[in-house]
Design a protein around this nucleic acid. Structure first.
Lengths: 299, 299
DNA sequence: AGATGTTACGGGGTTCGTAAGCATC
DNA sequence: GATGCTTACGAACCCCGTAACATCT
């Protein structure tokens, strides 16, 4: 019985999949299968019901799972006892939203490479809901994404930044002013992200709450595309204010507050709470130091 | 970081000796040393103060020790979750008192060999105090010995039997009767075991409590020698009643109660409480089934 | 078919024990 | 010099990954 075996078993059990677990631990399916098999033979008990749909725990598996979980937590405890976090190594898969990708992501990667040169990064850009799913499935190690309204207790969370939103439009469409009323907003076609986006979700909440009847003309899953469409005056859109400040300064876009004001969205760094590696807390700290949702790359 | 490393570290720390720990785990000193070294390098911290008198924990070592202890307990938990205890293997060193060696020890060994054919036994016969010392030092895995008055919380204990004592004398010396008074006892020379013996310790307590002035003529560390001396009528002795019943039946010895009566002694099966292997409980159970302090071999 | 878990096998890495090397008492 | 820990090195073993196989959707 070894810690490797327990780790393999733990992730196979919680992810309900040997292959997912193998990906999670950066080993082949074969290796993971064997580690679990070894654990079973060492204990002399079947941990998974090996018949129809595999990867279902036996009764004994349930019991062992709890203990295994505790063992892994203790292992992490021991590792974290010693003072400074040593450089990370291996492969790290993580998810980020497009907004992050377009802003402070390059700086974040630079810092990671600088402090953890042995760590191979595999970032994956997608919408928040997809990222959260991947997180839960163990396909990525952490994600930087907007906070959900419903707190998920399976995920550890570090708040990074609160984003203020503003209405954005081409200067050709709307003359410079401070604020748009609901009536003014309703006169324009609105470009939004697809409904899977947290930004859109938050907007829908706002619009139904204030009885705003919007005329959506386009729902796109790409933030940069939306910016481009807005600059091209296809319609107006609600976008993070700080993100597009540079373009507003350049006169390519005008920004407006709205009345009632748009909701803010909180971005955060999340990882599976049962992931006992130091990777999560360590990189979360780094993210906190680098976070800045101002557009500095691209466009 | 592996469980083997933690185990090596744990025993090196608690036994304050690498060599003792290596004996305890049935590996060479070299192997144990390397396991600890690997653990240290994996944690990036020194666990032992490697200067003057080695095998002294560093501050960090203290912290890790606690966690390691818990890890090993959990490992044992997991192993014991599964139902039946599988056959034991490897080498088992243990200590027994001479009284045990002369009575049910052969049956005990037979049962062990039968149920655990892969287990190599290395029994060691000595007085209780020596056995307890060896136990604490980790030089033996368990011991069968008389209970101490002061309970040692470091040791797990399973009570095996309570021994009633009687005065034994050659029939030539004392005519058959039920009971000896203190005055009668004081008239005869008394043969005792050496003062390290628990039997003797218990007797001293009794004699001082009842103001018995004994005339000791011989203190020997061998129980069988004492029996022989008593049969040869060198003096009288106090011995476990059931042990010598066969010899009383044969007319070689006479047994007498005393007034006040001699204290009883409880024999028990003990092992280090922090020894998380199943060996202790398993063999204790076996001992319970076989225990019988009646003389059946020898003489 | 496609996805998922197991089995077979060869190569590489790890870990063990023997034996020699050091330090301390 | 004895004891106790570390280092060096060859050999056995373990463990990983590739690839073929089995099984269920």
């Amino acid at each position: 019985m070894t810690l490797k075996q327990l780790e393999a078993f733990y992730w196979a059990a919680t992810l309900s999949s040997f292959s997912a677990a193998s990906g999670r631990l950066n080993v082949t399916q074969s290796t993971l299968s064997k580690r679990v098999a070894e654990l079973e033979s060492s204990l002399g008990v079947s941990l998974f019901a090996r018949s129809a749909n595999r990867t279902i725990l036996t009764e004994h598996g349930q019991l062992v799972l709890e203990k295994a979980q505790q063992m892994l937590v203790m292992e992490a405890d021991i590792k974290s006892l010693h003072g400074g976090p040593q450089p990370l190594r291996g492969t790290c898969r993580f998810g980020i939203s497009e907004l992050t990708a377009l802003t402070w992501f390059p700086k974040f990667v630079s810092r990671i490479n600088e402090l953890h040169p042995q760590l191979l990064l595999e970032p994956y850009v997608d919408l928040g809901s997809a990222l959260e799913k991947k997180l839960m499935r163990g396909e990525i190690d952490f994600a930087i994404l907007p906070k959900t309204s419903s707190g998920n207790t399976m995920l550890s969370t570090v708040a990074l930044a609160t984003l203020d939103f503003a209405w954005m439009a081409s200067p050709r469409r709307i003359a410079a002013k401070d604020e748009l009323t609901i009536e003014e907003i309703e006169q324009h076609p609105i470009i939004v992200m697809t409904s899977e986006s947290r930004l859109t979700e938050s907007f829908h909440q706002w619009s139904s709450q204030h009885n705003v009847t919007v005329r959506r003309v386009l729902a796109c899953n790409s933030l940069s595309a939306i910016v481009g469409l807005t600059v091209a005056d296809v319609g107006i859109s609600f976008l993070p204010r700080r993100f597009l400040e540079p373009m507003v300064q350049q006169g390519k876009l005008s920004a407006f507050q709205s009345n009632p004001s748009l909701p803010a969205i909180e971005y955060c760094f999340r990882w599976r709470a049962d992931d006992t590696r130091t990777l999560g807390p360590t990189l979360a700290q780094l993210a906190l130091e680098e976070v800045d949702y101002s557009l500095t790359y691209g466009f």
